[in-house]
């Protein structure tokens, strides 16, 4: 798959301790949920499903259950990530690009840069809810308004560069570097 982290970095992420990673991921997730209270409503009945978000170039998987206001999130090793209703798998930078609107999920699926299995309806609901959430880096980081512009711009530049270095799929979304 295009956009994979290089093997040395991929292997290095294997040494990351899961608990602190989970604490950080939960924090980011709850920032996003607090900023987008309608997210769970848009998911409707699928909010009760467990989604495995699988960055295929890392050895861990995020298990997310976005029910109501109290989203449940676990970070587990891929070998034990069995208990889920649906799985969305792609390289890490591609998954991040889907969250921030850089990529179109359908296009990634057509080009086989992203794969899904399990409950297709739940995957679509999640994809559409994420699309509508218009999440940007400063929202996920929970930053005050004054910092949002510069942080979003800097992060986008960083990701444009990173995706180029990793030969990730071409960007063309409203949040890519390509459009004014």
């Amino acid at each position: 798959m295009r956009g994979h982290l290089p093997p040395f970095l991929s292997n290095a992420t294997g040494f990351l301790p899961l608990l602190p990673l989970e604490v950080i991921a939960r924090r980011l997730m709850s920032n996003a949920m607090a900023a987008r209270p309608s997210f769970a409503a848009r998911l409707g009945e699928y909010a009760g499903r467990t989604f495995a978000i699988d960055p295929v170039d890392c050895p861990f998987v995020f298990l997310i259950k976005p029910e109501g206001g109290r989203t449940d999130m676990k970070v587990v090793r891929r070998s034990v990530a069995q208990d889920h209703d649906a799985r969305i798998a792609a390289p890490l930078v591609v998954l991040i690009g889907m969250v921030d609107g850089t990529y179109d999920g359908d296009a990634l699926f057509f080009s086989r840069d992203l794969s899904i299995d399990g409950d297709t309806e739940a995957v679509l609901a999640l994809r559409n809810a994420i699309e509508n959430a218009e999440l940007d880096p400063s929202t996920v980081l929970g930053l005050p308004k004054s910092l949002q512009g510069p942080v979003n711009r800097a992060t986008r530049r960083l990701f444009v560069e990173l995706r180029r270095l990793l030969d990730a799929p071409e960007e063309n979304g409203p949040n890519s570097g390509a459009n004014p």
């Binding site: 889907m98 609107g101 850089t102 990529y103 179109d104 999920g105 359908d106 296009a107 679509l124 994809r127 559409n128 699309e131 218009e134 960007e171 063309n172 979304g173 409203p174 949040n175 890519s176 459009n179």
Partner: peptide, 13 residues
């Protein structure tokens, strides 16, 4: 209507 913002913005523009 099922497509994402990335697609919409590029095609509409």
């Amino acid at each position: 209507r099922q497509r994402g913002r990335a697609y919409i913005s590029t095609v509409v523009r």
